[in-house]
Amino acid sequence: MTDATVSTPVPTTGLEPAPEPASSSRAQQRKARKNAAKDPKRKITWDRVWAQRALLAMAVPLLLYQILFKYVPVYGWAIAFQHYKPGRGSIWNQQWVGLENFYNLFTGVNGERFRQVVVNTMGQSVLTLIVGTFGAIVLALLLNEVKNLPFKRILQNITYMPHFLSWVIVASLASVALSLPSSGGFINQGLMSLHLVDEPVLFLTEPNYFWEIVAGTSLWKELGWNTILYLAAITAIDPGLYEAAEVDGAGRYRKMFSITLPSIRPTIVVLLIINSGWILSTNFELPYFLGNGLVSEKSETIDVFVLRYGYQLGNYSLAVVAGIFKTIVAVILVGSANLAAKRLNQETLV
């Protein structure tokens, strides 16, 4: 991000004439930026830095924040190579054990379990991400077509609301909804009254349903919230495009597929890239609250595993090893998502 600030000054600073002709099309802007980057005259010089000092100064606090809270704490990774016991004052006053903790996590019984929790984490996250993104786009498109404003507002508010419930509550609601009819399980009640099943299904005891339950519950909670960004992107579309399409005789569906969707494509891609970094880090609450022994082979995620085998057993070193693993995988995931987007000639982050 800082890179971008340096190479393309925001025109409104008034420190320099705007380098690019004003243009409304994103594609043109991108092209201009690319050219600019190649232009030898646009090299970073001390003069330019000085000219932009106000902007750079504004970036300093953020930079400090990043360094202080994201890079400095990395020294704590040392714990991964120790037999760490808390309360000894400094983390350098510990017994060093080399790679023992790595062997412990990646081999033997723990290794088997850890491989399983990595698969579960990815499976649940990817499914949640796909279902969530798809659902949010569809809902955003549908909401955009609602022309009665009060009705649209009500719809939006209703779909947002679950976002403000905590996961504990959502998990309890889900577990009641999925339980036996005698315990208030209305899903089973519905299925039975529709004669789709003869006997109530114990959803939460069947491992193979668990990923879907997680994805479905997250969808219910976050659907409305996730549409906000897409709706915002849709409102930014030039109404002239729709008018022109109408003149050309395009109907509602044509406009949706040929104007709305392509216009929000960059938003979709950027959100997907950002979210891919969280694939190993999300999904603690639902697996923790909804999981049980019967489904743990499909429910336990990395964070739940780390909580149980790391923090609760007081084995902080193991938790740090898992943390390092997660960081490395996250960097790889974001990098490759970004690369893939670049290949597809899409908007990218870096």
Binding site: N104, V109, N110, R113, N292, G293, L294, S296, E297, R308, Y309, L313, G314, N315
Partner: peptide, 14 residues
């Protein structure tokens, strides 16, 4: 030993 104990419990619960 705590870790093994936890593994036994987990296997039982599973």
């Amino acid at each position: 030993a705590n870790q093994v104990n936890q593994q036994v419990t987990d296997t039982s619960v599973q």
